[in-house]
Design a protein around this nucleic acid. Structure first.
Length: 112
DNA sequence: ACTTTGACTATAA
DNA sequence: GTTATAGCCAAAG
């Protein structure tokens, strides 16, 4: 158990706190961790999220435009969209509809 | 220890 | 509306 708590672990925890049927963005998560600007690190953390336990609902994390940028990193390129649709989220052209309504800001909902 | 990368974001043209 | 470029920062190779 030589795991040292890293930036990644913080990302995983925040992503797990994303409620059902909601989505968040990399920048919002990074900013919540006090690392505003490190949005790329959040995405990279997701890359190793599959090695984390419990699994991280990475499908609820999209880019700032509500676009499913990381869908290619799932088992199937459409897995992410199907997961989102399974939660009642409407996805069209790889973009989350009503994104601003479904957007869940950890720094606002979690920290408040 | 150094270089490359990467599921981003913001601004500019 | 798009495309291009720069900034960003921490982990992986």
């Amino acid at each position: 158990m030589s795991n040292n708590p890293t930036f990644f672990d913080q990302v995983y925890e925040v992503v797990r706190h994303i409620p059902y049927g909601r989505v968040s963005t990399y920048g919002a998560i990074a900013r919540c961790l006090g690392a505003a600007g490190s949005a790329r690190m959040v995405g990279w953390a997701m890359n190793t999220s599959h090695t984390q336990m419990p699994p991280v609902p990475a499908h609820r994390v999209v880019n700032r435009n509500g676009l499913l940028t990381g869908k290619h990193h799932f088992g199937s390129p459409d897995a992410m969209q199907q997961l989102l649709e399974a939660e009642g989220i409407v996805v069209k052209n790889n973009q989350v509809q009503q994104f601003e309504t479904l957007f869940w800001d950890p720094a606002k909902e979690l920290e408040l």
